[in-house]
Nucleic acid binder design. Structure first.
Lengths: 337, 337
DNA sequence: CAGCGGGATTTAGACGATTCAATTCGGCGC
DNA sequence: GCGCCGAATTGAATCGTCTAAATCCCGCTG
């Protein structure tokens, strides 16, 4: 009933376990006739290789952990897609882990992955200085930071978030806005901080623009809507005329609140989001957004990881940085005078 | 450099490996002083338990595979969320696998999970009669079908899709529609077939309603948009006045196409989707949708799995079926006369 | 015909944790 | 002082696979 082991296969095929193992791992070196006989026996017995035993022997697994902040955010699923496509080629498996922007959950996932002796970990960390990450690496599990720049000690793949913030800021200021709000959080997260910093820089250069920072705990639709409801309640004079949301989910939620309050987008309030997820273009008012190449990020991260493992000595850590684009759609396509 | 083994810990703490193992697995039976000493050593050495070795010995892992048709579909991420919440309580880990409605990818994931001696598998299969699934179970990996009813040989958790189809059909017919289109696919997928069957039944009962079935390969936004573009090109006389999409992504795509073609929703074309994902309510025109309790599905599936493993003998397979609700929003809120 | 080369196959020893039967030890009752 | 009990701890076997070194076998060469 239990699946047979390599030993039973060997016995039934009249060969030794070593040969069966060779058929599995280096088929080229075993004689064609023998190979076929073993393969047939494997078929007949329904043998399934025991990865646990293999990992134990080899000392390392073939699972790549991909720890993201929010699986419900299409940005991350696109990213996962990219990573997975490459993993497949390297005969490795991606395990998608959702930290939900919660350091505790994140830690839990990291523990699990380390116990499994994961092949490596791709992570969008809550805090990229978390000593835990260094610990992982020190103990032998390679880590690549995703959507977050590392400082030399690690490989990383990221997007220039400050530039993203500047792009959004420049666009809004050039469109005539003089009261702008930034929505995002937690501000301790580097990505968020950078997007905000980019915007802030631009605002300061412009001189006569008022900027309000609104921090949220979690960047989901619900929080965006909540902030939107608050702003909608303000008088038109004190309300910002444009908001820049640190991701599209916030922006979509915010947009819903505007619709509910009968405020016009972009005339009463312009909105720019971040990530350019598929739903952004499909929103009630198509959403302007700072686009990040999610799939490419994932693919590149996996590439760095495989490279790091394959020749560990020659490897030097690299930090790859991509450029974001601003995609202007209806939600901010209005010049205020 | 490599993480130390239980043996080193034992040596450094001046006890035997058996005791260390006991500290890890049955702390209660070891003397407090010894326990503390061992724990301190574990800390000091940075020992991390090797899951592979554990699994090998125990014969089964602690990973639960959750194989879904599309991770980008919020319905499935909600489902995953539900499953994960329960997994945590049982000291087990969820591995999210994306089959992308592709039997080959699905098979690949199943192979991986079986090789890992997964604790169990929760799957929304492409084809629920796939003999592979029976094979898995026969060889000892428990399987629970999700969002799909099983026929006694397996546990399953599903939603009454025929009822969902009837709810949508009744609503549209009562709203005065007499030319209705169904969009979904592949029709070989039970869920899709059932949703269509429910609609068809209702249409036949009404007598004077024309029904068109439009099959798509994949139920994503892009395909919905494509179908929408085709229908928009028809003359108003031949065009259906209402469409029922087998999931919300299709519906959202379809909605985009209507907007692009300057057709009014719901006046020119009414739309009802399926799943009631978060984005449905946030769409350009808030989307009517047949709601499924995604989180509950996931949670219940995990419950059945744990139950099945915990007392394998007493266990009888169960098929849990939930009822869907129709949520009427603006996209179909219009009575045609 | 002895010896050799080399491809094919076998053998045996890890890998690290779990488990359970066996052992040790201190104390307690008689 | 003896024997016994139970709690705490030990030790060894085991899980299934990989791998490096050893062996086997054949045909060929000199």
């Amino acid at each position: 009933m239990a699946t047979p082991s390599i030993k039973e296969v060997a016995h039934r095929a009249g060969v030794s376990v070593g040969t069966v193992s060779n058929v599995l791992n280096r088929p080229a070196i075993v004689a064609p006739a023998t190979r076929q006989r073993v393969l047939d026996t494997i078929q007949a017995l329904g043998f399934v290789r025991n990865e646990a035993a293999r990992n134990l022997r080899v000392g390392r697994g073939r699972t790549v952990g991909l720890v993201v902040l929010d699986v419900a955010n299409p940005f991350f699923t696109d990213l996962a897609e990219g990573a997975e496509s490459l993993a497949y080629e390297h005969d490795t498996v991606v395990m998608l882990c959702n930290s939900k922007t919660d350091p505790v959950r994140e830690g839990h996932h990291l523990d699990q992955l380390e116990q499994q002796r994961a092949f490596g970990i791709l992570i969008t960390p809550f805090d990229s200085n978390d000593p835990r990450l260094r610990g992982l690496v020190a103990r032998g599990t390679p880590v690549v930071l995703v959507d977050r720049a590392a400082d030399g000690g690690l490989c990383s793949v990221s997007v220039d978030d400050k530039l993203g913030g500047r792009l959004a800021g420049t666009h809004l200021i050039e469109s005539g806005h003089r009261r702008i709000a930034f929505i995002g959080g937690p501000l301790t997260m580097q990505q968020v901080a950078d997007r905000q910093a980019g915007l802030t820089t631009t605002v300061e250069q412009a001189g006569d623009v008022a900027l309000e920072i609104i921090e949220v705990e979690v960047m989901g639709v619900a929080h965006g809507r909540a902030v939107g409801e608050d702003l909608a309640a303000l008088s038109p004079r004190s309300r910002p005329t444009a908001v820049f949301c640190a991701n599209d989910l916030l922006a979509l939620g915010f947009l819903q609140a505007m619709a509910a309050a009968n405020l016009r987008v972009p005339q009463d309030v312009a909105i720019v989001g971040y990530d350019d997820i598929g739903f952004a273009a499909a929103a009630a008012v198509p959403l302007s957004s700072v686009r990040q190449p999610a799939g490419l990020l994932g693919r590149t991260a996996m590439e760095l990881l495989q490279e790091e493992v394959e020749d560990a000595d020659r490897h030097r850590h690299r930090q790859v940085i991509f450029q974001p684009d601003l995609v202007i759609r209806q939600s901010s396509d209005f010049v205020r005078r």
